[in-house]
């Protein structure tokens, strides 16, 4: 029941005039500073909505009077960054790979740029540390399929492997089993011969003969490979598709023709050079 609004003696506040079973409620208004802060936030919100992008429409959104766009800000920052880097980037572009490696300042710039380009473009297949994985070569060891010199690495990155690029590295291993060039028994014999190159099995005369006839042209009579043709060495302990009997058998039966995209059109010249320096310095460069 509404009662009279009166002043409470203890607190000095007015009551609300409401009473429930003798319990009266004090009218304690919100603090003035709170009210004004609240009004200020309302005004701020209105001004903000007018100035900045805010309301979504069905197709697009309110652009705001200032025309602010976070992407434009980002582009500006990226441009400023590119401008700050321009001096180094130009020097990278005009300096030969061998000379970049000799200049400490340029080298560390190339390493940093190469690392970031590697983490963006290469690590998906070759791993964050360049250790590779099944079917994707390890770039940290000293075994190179297409060559580990600065120029060779540069050419591989620029044009890729077994793709549509004119200058792409090209070669093809025959599908000995699928295409019926060798029988299963013959493939097994060659597998034994390949294993024997790293001392893991005993070669048979048949296997030796087939290897020399079918494989030696590319992989070399001693099985040490040929980087011109991208034929990996079969005599070391490094296997791209696995080094056990089963994996080698399947490599011969189905053939392996891994590919890599060309980067010339996607990355600029300086970035490819920096990537080359970085990959070369991962530990395996020659």
């Amino acid at each position: 029941m509404p009662t009279k609004i009166e002043k409470d003696t203890l607190s000095g506040q007015n009551t609300t005039g409401h009473e429930w079973d003798g319990v009266r409620e004090l009218n304690t208004p919100l603090p003035t500073w709170w009210i004004y802060t609240f009004y200020a936030t309302v005004v701020f919100a209105i001004v903000y909505c007018a100035l900045y992008p805010s309301w979504p429409w069905l197709n697009g959104h309110a652009k705001g009077m200032l025309g602010y766009w976070s992407r434009a800000e980002l582009t500006q920052e990226l441009d400023a960054q590119a401008k700050a880097r321009a001096g180094f980037v130009d020097r990278i572009r005009t300096t030969s790979l061998a000379d970049i490696a000799k200049e400490p300042e340029l080298f560390s710039f190339a390493m940093a740029g190469g690392r970031s380009a590697f983490q963006t473009n290469c690590m998906q297949c070759h791993g964050a540390g360049g250790a590779g994985s099944h079917g994707f070569p390890n770039l940290v060891d000293d075994d190179w399929i297409w060559g580990g010199s600065l120029e060779q690495i540069h050419a591989t990155i620029e044009h890729g492997i077994r793709n549509a690029d004119d200058k792409s590295r090209q070669s093809m291993m025959p599908r000995f089993g699928v295409d019926g060039m060798l029988t299963g028994a013959q493939i097994a014999a060659v597998t034994d011969y390949v294993l024997s190159l790293s001392g893991k099995a005993q070669a048979t005369p048949e296997g030796t003969q087939i290897f020399q006839e079918q494989c030696a042209a590319c992989h070399g009579p001693d099985g040490k490979g040929n980087q011109e043709l991208g034929a990996p060495s079969l005599a070391d302990g490094i296997w791209l598709y696995g080094g056990n009997r089963d994996a080698i058998y399947r490599s011969i039966f189905y053939a392996r023709n891994g590919s890599m995209p060309p980067w010339a059109g996607r990355l600029d010249e300086a970035t490819i050079k920096m990537l080359t320096i970085y990959v070369h310095a991962l530990g395996g460069g020659r």
Binding site: A131, S233, G237
Partner: peptide, 10 residues
């Protein structure tokens, strides 16, 4: 990454 590298000569 990688923890260690095995070179071609082992």
């Amino acid at each position: 990454s990688p923890n260690f590298v095995r070179l071609s000569n082992g």
